[in-house]
Nucleic acid binder design. Structure first.
Length: 117
DNA sequence: CGATTGACGTACG
DNA sequence: TCGTACGCCAATC
């Protein structure tokens, strides 16, 4: 099968994982940004669904670097622990206040910019 | 095969 | 500015 075959749902999931792995340490991105980069800007929810299936995927997907569009850690409950996601982000130098990423505009990593579209 | 759900995002009052 | 409503689209029931 072709390496880049977006027609396949499974490939779409895989593409999401690849983009998430490209997120640099100490940076974060959003579900919508990933969806938009993949040409499915109206499928932000599907990106989140892909993350839900990211457990057990190899190589591991740094899902803690993916938040919603306002920098809110909406998916922290899916990390097993309540503070796991926040702890991982803080260990990378990202400041979090009440599940909200501080200076989100500065740490935000847009795949379209990073990949020089 | 139809109804429901969800780690989202935008529109509207 | 803040809370609520609705649309999207794949997966699950």
């Amino acid at each position: 099968m072709p390496i880049l075959d977006i027609t396949s749902k499974k490939e779409f999931f895989d593409l999401v994982y690849q983009v998430v792995r490209l997120v640099p340490k100490g940076r974060v991105t959003s579900y919508g940004a990933i969806a938009k980069y993949l040409g499915a800007s109206r499928s932000a929810r599907i990106v989140g669904y892909a993350m839900n299936n990211a457990h057990g995927v190899v190589p591991p997907v740094p899902a803690h670097r993916v938040v919603n569009r306002v920098g809110l850690l909406t998916g922290k409950h899916h990390f097993g622990g309540e503070k796991t996601m926040q702890t991982l982000l803080e260990s990378e130098g990202i400041k979090i206040n009440d599940d909200q990423i501080e200076n989100f505009n500065e740490v935000f990593w847009d795949p379209q910019i990073a990949l020089e579209i």
